[in-house]
Amino acid sequence: MRVPLGVLALGLAVVGVASDHNNIDKERPLRFDDAYSIALGGLEFQNGLRYDPARRSWFGRSELQIGFARNRDLSIGWEPFSAPGQGLRSGALELSYFETLRRETEGFPAIGYRAEVSSTGGQPEARLRGIATRLLSGAAKVHLNLDLGLNSRRRGTFGGIVGFSLPQGYHTTYLGEIGWASGEKGGFVGVGMRRQMSTRGVLDLGVEASTVGRFRFTVGFSLGL
């Protein structure tokens, strides 16, 4: 479905929430999550653009997260894209439930999971991600993500990511990841950063390279409402 560019621009212009550079969600800017939901009563609006130079395609992403209960959030996401000859297309719609099962203690990592359903052009997909977050040294953390999915052809998918986060100074977190996904013919590595720009806003930047030589560049901004 074609969508007017103005609708996307309106989505990106919504202002509002306290977002934290050290709370990491998928696609902001890399693929991995940390094990923590947003706060109870929190409302966060995340937006981003990703460019895939091999396909000369732009992918937008807007997501509204709602901390509806203690240690739980729901999010509604939308991924419009633009490719040569196709114009701007509506892309995937996504509904996601995230739960932190436990915070990190000295003997145990933080554990969370994300359950997600999405639909692209009426083709449904489902994914389940298990997440463990553990402090390494100083404030550096490792984030293990394990993915199981069912794609639109009813075939199982799986993958895994090891993510790293390293806060520097008061307002910046550097990120790295190495991962593999069954549907992508190989693995990928990525680096990125999240920077607190204001009391409510976080800018993120990321670049990812796959083992088959493809790149993707990501820029995003998250706002607390």
Binding site: S37, I38, G41, G67, N71, R102, R103, A110, T199
Partner: peptide
Amino acid sequence: RPGADAVSYRRGSYNFAIH
């Protein structure tokens, strides 16, 4: 309880007026 239990601040036009 094992949860992180983070709670957001109450929303209001006054937030961050300290600036």
